[in-house]
Amino acid sequence: MKTRLNCPCGEHLTGANEDELVDIVRKHLTENHPGHDYSRDEILFIAY
């Protein structure tokens, strides 16, 4: 299960599980990188 992702902006994002991580990443993208929308699969591809 992947629960961490390092955004290229330097932010380190962590979730308790993959669903939470995807939610956290999407919120981060909306707030900090408007226009950058990624699918669940794309987010999990770069997560670890």
Rank of each mutant, 00 (worst) to 15 (best):
M1C: 00
M1L: 05
K2V: 14
K2W: 04
T3S: 10
T3I: 07
T3H: 11
R4S: 08
R4I: 04
R4C: 01
L5S: 04
L5I: 15
L5P: 01
L5T: 09
N6R: 06
N6W: 14
C7E: 01
P8N: 12
P8M: 11
C9W: 05
C9P: 01
G10H: 07
G10S: 05
E11A: 15
E11Q: 13
E11W: 11
H12S: 12
H12I: 13
L13F: 05
L13P: 13
T14G: 00
G15K: 06
A16E: 15
A16S: 14
N17Q: 02
N17L: 01
N17R: 00
E18V: 00
E18M: 00
E18C: 05
D19T: 06
D19N: 13
E20S: 00
L21W: 02
V22A: 07
V22S: 01
V22Y: 10
I24M: 06
V25C: 08
V25P: 02
V25M: 08
K27N: 07
K27D: 15
H28T: 08
H28G: 04
H28M: 06
H28K: 03
L29P: 00
T30K: 07
E31L: 12
E31D: 15
N32R: 12
N32F: 03
N32P: 01
N32C: 11
N32I: 00
H33A: 03
P34E: 10
G35Y: 10
G35R: 13
G35T: 11
H36N: 15
H36W: 06
D37N: 15
D37A: 07
Y38M: 15
Y38R: 10
Y38S: 05
S39G: 13
R40C: 04
D41C: 08
D41I: 10
E42L: 10
E42R: 00
I43F: 04
I43Q: 05
L44T: 05
L44Q: 04
F45K: 11
I46H: 01
I46E: 10
I46M: 12
I46G: 01
I46A: 05
A47K: 09
A47H: 07
Y48K: 14
Y48C: 02
Y48G: 10
